[in-house]
Every structure is written in structure tokens, then in C-alpha cells.
Nucleic acid binder design. Structure first.
Lengths: 365, 365
DNA sequence: GGTTCAATCTACATCGTTGTATATCGGCTG
DNA sequence: CAGCCGATATACAACGATGTAGATTGAACC
């Protein structure tokens, strides 16, 4: 019943050539008589032959696939990041396999060490549970590019963003608008690493440079950076009775949640409270009101990550310094800070890129 | 420099057993002396052996991977769908490879016929460019599950939603709230198939059952169902001067865009205009105001699609009727229709599921 | 006219597993 | 005690492609 797969063997037989010649035709090897090529192509067509990618992968030791490990696609930032990375990979002839780690430590380790290690040529990894102490786990013997702000000293290439500087710029911008009681949503108490810690640090620097005091009462905690947690953190801040005239949500999802919570209490944005997010996802360009946000250069992050990985794959085994790349980011002003009256969005601050840095300790990736 | 991959051969040698025994240990074959098993495990541990998935795939003719083809992940509905499908697949021990078609005809055909055909065990395909005329292209010789509303007579299992009934219910609900000038955003002029046509049909039926006339001036067109196109369509409707007291956006992304456009014109939702979307994505639960929407049963769609595909894969070659599954959907009422004052969301209408239907023309999938 | 070389094609081994058939051993059955 | 069976382990071929080395042309070269 089930038609057995057509192989090169069958094609070779029908075309009256060797199986290797079929392979050569399929792979575009140039030195083939036009007549032969035609016979082979006819046979392929007639038999409906399709190359077996798995067999080729085994023989060539390449799969032309890469893995992208992110927490979850239902978080808009990661969905958009995945979109960009898939496109960038496609341009390089690569297919992307997505692993959702759910920000679970176990799953993140599994991605690094698990079964599928031999299935793709490399890994772009955006950790959320692992931290600096886990650097050892990243010493895998295959091409790896790390994203994000949790692990900086990994033996791997690293694409990140200018968190501190951008957060500082956000805070300064809010201060420049005359806001004095700038709250934060999404802090992680006691944490020393990761986006939360860095952006909070930028916030403190921004306050300081604006001559504003740091008030712990203005710092709202939120574990996972979802819309819902942002709304909860915002609600708690408001309920605490602390005076607030601006909110810096450490990512856009929380900014949307915060906006929701503000609206529920009939607090006007931006008249009563100004609001800024981080990530510049599509949502904040259409929310009501639109939300000012930090564009961390998502496209560039994606393209760079793929490019670095492709390089590592090509040079597998060749030692070369690990690189840290930090694309330029910028603040896009929108209604939530009164920077534009409606729609649009305009750059109100550009944050210098960190450029490309080569790290001494050059091991083999 | 580069460590050559450790194979079963190396493990076998170190453990002093045959390579097949190593394979048996790795695969959990029961009849192995504990002592032997331990020696093998020690060797695996010591050498850092990892199974080569590609080789196994070749030998077993299975990859335990499935392909999911969607237009793009930056559309929230598809991001959430992908999330759900990846989780459902994981529960079945499958990994998901995502292909973005960008709603391009060419890419959609490529996904069906392309190189990677032999790389995964099956395909879950959500077409946006192909239509009923392309049914022939779907006669592929491998497990396939089709999603969506564009192709109904494909020789494949099909998971869809109750578009007409749900859209009718939405319209009736708006009418029941006293709205008389119900506009639509996202129609596709002249199109006979697909979500747009079906939902528009439901809209017409809803109007009719409510005794309201159908007014073409109230129908706004939008090609791609993005936030931006929804905003444009809404703006055009408003600029046309037509009277409107409710808007049915044919998906949530457009509803968010429409809300944005309404807000830009200082039109209050829901006081001046009520708004309903479709898909029940996360965004509409946190927008300002929150938006009433149709929950098409995304989780169930995902689980069903994976389950059907798994069944086809297991029974490859066995003929069995093609099935069409239509999960139940429901309208979740929120602020944009005044159904709740804030937050939350409550079911205001349940739409009967279409159940499972078996289609006569049973070919082999 | 022998040599050289590019073009064209083929044979064979190989990538790292798993399926199949088979060998060996000891114990249990009747 | 012959016969049988389950437990344990192995040898060998096979999955479907590609890399390597080499065979066979015919034209070009000196």
C-alpha cells in the first residue's frame, strides 16, 4: 500500500547512470553532459524523487538547521525575536528549530546538553533561568551564541543590549519631562544579574544624574515579565499609596499591564502618569495610548546572532576570541510620555552601541 | 583540535561489549545484565557519549519532528498557536520545526513540496495564500493536518473553527446591546473562501436574525490582518462619514488597530462605539479598554491537530477517512462591549462545536 | 605521436545507528 | 534427560546519501 520511498538508486537505474551521478546532478556539480543531466532530471521528475535530507545530514555531518531556545513564544518580544531570527537564518540557508524552555532551569540545561545536540549545527540560546554560576554548563563542544543579560562570561559569542545606558536614558528623559516620582515595574529583589538588575541600575544612575533621590517605595517587583504581572505590580504600587507621576516598566509586556492597571483606576496616561516600556514590540505602537519604549535593535540582534553562529559553524574547531556585540538602541517617544500627540513615534534619544568586543580567553567554540 | 564525535563504537570498546549492546542500553532494552548495563553506562559517562540523532533517524525512518507552517510569528495569534502546538507536540515526544510562509503562495507551495519533506514526520499547515483551487497540491504522500478556513476539501485531516456561527453570535450580541450600525473591519472584497468570507457571512446572518439591514458602507476592507491594517480600515470608515455605533473586527490584531484609530479620534469605546474582535489573544485581555472577543478554542485546536497528526504518522499507509474537527468557541465579553466594568472577561455566548466529521473520500494520508 | 589535462562518469567505502537472525547458556518441564 | 524457553549478547546488513580515488574519454600541447 504505502509506496516505499524513491531513492537515488531508483533514479540512477531509470536514467542508466550511477547513483553518484544522480547525486552530482542533484547537487549542481558542473561537469555533467547536458544530455545526461536531462536524463537524470527526467527520471527524478517521473519517479517523484525527493532527496532524503536525513541521509545527507548523516553523511555530510551538517544539518543546516540551528536551534533557537527561548522562554516562550507567547511573550511578544520572543515571538518577534523568533520571527527575525528565522528570517535571518533563512537568508543564510538555515532552518530554525525552536525550543521553548518556559524559563525553567531544567529545560534550559536540557537544551544545552540534551539529546538533540547532534541534530542541529548550532544553538542560539536566550537563558532566563541559568545565571553566571552556570557558566560551566555553557562549555559545550558546539557552536553557541548566547543572548540576553544573564550570563556574561560564557565561553561563547554573546549578543546583548545596552541595558544600563538605555535605562538611564529613559529615566533622564522622564526627569526632563518634569517627572519627579518615577516608579519602576518589574524589579527582581536582590538579584545581581539579568535584565532586571541592569535596568534598575540604569534607573538609579538616571535618577542620580537628574538629582532625584532613589526611593525604594517606588520600586515594584514582578517575577515573570508578563502583562499580568505588570498589571499586578502596578496595582500594588498604586494601592500602597505612594505618589507616582511616571512609570518605567522594565519591559513592554509589563508596560501594557501597567497601563491596564492605571486605566482601571482612571489614572490618565500621560497627564497623571507618564509611562515608558522596554523592547519596542509591535503592541506598544498601537496601544491606547501608544507607549514610549526602548528599541533595543531587535533586527540587528537577530542578524548578528545568526551571523556569529554561521561563522562559528563554518570555522568549527578553529579557535578565535569570543565576541560580545551590543547593537545601538534608542528611545522611541510616543503618547504615553506626551512626546507625540498621536500615532507615529519619534526617536527622542539614541544610546551608543557597545560595538564589538573581543574577549581574550579564546577557547574553541 | 576538534574532538571527533564519540560513537557507540567507542563506548562498546571501552565497555567490552558489542555496539548493539550499547544501543540496547541506550534504548532501554530490558534484557541486559545489571552489571553489563552499568559498564556501558560508565563508558557513556566517561566518554561523554551522545547519541547521534541523525543516524538514528536514518535507520528508523522517523525523526520525531513535525513541521508547523504558519504565516508569521509576529502575528500574535500565530505566535500563541505555535506556543500551544509546541507544548502539545512535546507531550507526544515531538519537536516542532517552524516554517514562516509570510502568506506567500510560493512559500506555501515550497513547504508542501520542498526539500525538507523527508526531514520531519508530518506537517501542520495553516495556509493563507493557497485556496480551494489548490487542493491538488495538498495530495502529498505524508501525514498532513490542515488548519484554517481556506481549504475544506483537501485530502487531509482538518481542524477549523465555527466561523459563521461565531460571527453570527457576535453580531447578535452587538444587536442585543442595542447597537444598530454595526461595522465590519477586515473584509476581503469578492473573496468566497477563507476566514474573511465566512465571518462576513456570519455577520450578515446575524444582522438578518436581528432584523437589521446590511449596509455595504459599513464594511471596511483590509488585506492582511495586522494591527496597522485594522487601524487604517477603521480610519477610512470613520472618515467616510458613515454612522457607526459598533465595530466587529474580524480578528483581534485589527481590533487593536481599530481601537487605536477610534482613540485617535476621541471616540469612546464602548460608550460611542462597541468593539468586538476574534481570536481571544492575550493582548485583548489587557488593552485599554479590554476587548470582547471570540475564543475559537486555540488550545483544543492545537491539541487536536497534533493528535490527528500523531495518529496519521503511526498508521502511515493505512487508509482511513479524513476528519474535520471543529472545537467549540465562545464569546468572551469584556469592557469594549460594556459586558464587564473592568478586567476579567465573562462568557456571554457559547457556540456549539461542529464536532468531528468523517469525510467519505478516504484516501491514504 | 606520446603526454597532459579537463571533462565525465563510476566503484566503493563510509557516516552512526538499529533490525534481524542467530549463538550460547542455564533452568524448567514432563 | 531430551527438549524447550527465556535471558543475554553478538555479527552483519541496511537506512540513503556523499567523499575519494580512479577509470575512460577526447582534445590540446609540444
Amino acid at each position: 500500500m504505502k509506496a516505499v520511498a524513491v531513492t537515488m538508486h531508483d533514479v540512477a537505474q531509470r536514467a542508466g547512470v550511477s547513483i553518484k551521478t544522480v547525486s552530482n546532478v542533484v547537487n549542481g556539480y558542473p561537469h555533467i553532459r547536458p544530455e545526461t543531466r536531462q536524463r537524470v532530471e527526467e527520471a527524478i521528475e517521473h519517479l517523484g524523487y525527493r532527496l532524503n535530507t536525513t541521509a545527507r545530514n548523516l553523511r555530510t555531518r551538517r544539518t543546516d538547521m540551528i536551534t533557537l531556545a527561548v522562554p516562550e513564544l507567547s511573550l511578544p518580544y520572543f515571538a518577534e525575536l523568533a520571527d527575525s531570527i528565522i528570517r535571518a537564518a533563512e537568508d543564510e540557508g538555515l532552518t530554525v528549530l525552536i525550543e521553548q524552555t518556559s524559563a525553567s532551569r531544567e529545560r534550559e540545561i536540557e537544551v544545552l546538553t540534551g539529546l538533540r545536540r547532534h541534530l542541529t549545527d548550532g544553538l542560539i540560546f536566550s537563558p532566563l533561568a541559568l545565571g553566571p554560576h552556570d557558566v560551566g554548563l555553557l562549555s559545550v563542544d558546539r557552536p553557541l551564541v548566547v543572548l540576553g543579560e544573564r550570563i556574561f562570561d560564557a565561553p561563547a559569542d554573546h549578543v546583548t543590549m545596552n541595558n544600563v545606558a538605555a535605562a538611564k536614558a529613559v529615566t533622564q528623559h522622564l526627569a526632563a519631562l518634569g517627572r519627579r516620582r518615577i516608579a519602576v515595574v518589574g524589579a527582581h529583589e536582590g538579584e545581581q544579574v539579568g535584565s532586571a538588575a541592569l535596568r534598575l541600575e540604569g534607573y538609579r544612575q538616571g535618577l542620580e544624574s537628574a538629582g532625584l533621590p532613589f526611593d525604594p517605595a517606588l520600586v515594584g517587583e514582578a517575577g515573570l515579565w508578563h502583562r499580568s504581572t505588570g498589571a499586578e505590580a502596578m496595582a500594588q504600587l498604586l494601592d500602597s499609596g505612594v505618589e507616582v507621576d511616571a512609570v518605567f516598566a522594565l519591559n513592554d509586556a509589563m508596560a501594557l499591564g501597567a497601563l491596564h492597571a492605571l486605566h482601571a483606576r482612571r489614572i490618565d496616561v500621560p497627564d497623571d502618569v507618564a509611562l515608558v516600556g522596554f523592547d519596542d514590540i509591535d503592541d506598544v505602537k498601537f496601544s491606547v495610548p501608544t507607549i514610549t519604549s526602548v528599541d533595543p535593535g531587535r533586527e540587528e540582534i537577530a542578524r548578528t546572532a545568526v551571523a556569529l553562529l554561521v561563522e562559528r559553524i563554518a570555522e568549527a574547531g578553529v579557535p578565535r576570541p569570543f565576541r560580545r556585540v551590543v547593537p545601538a538602541s534608542r528611545i522611541v517617544g510616543r503618547e504615553s510620555t506626551g512626546d507625540v500627540l498621536e500615532g507615529g513615534g519619534q526617536v527622542v534619544a539614541a544610546v551608543q552601541p557597545g560595538g564589538v568586543e573581543e574577549i581574550e580567553d579564546a577557547r574553541t567554540a
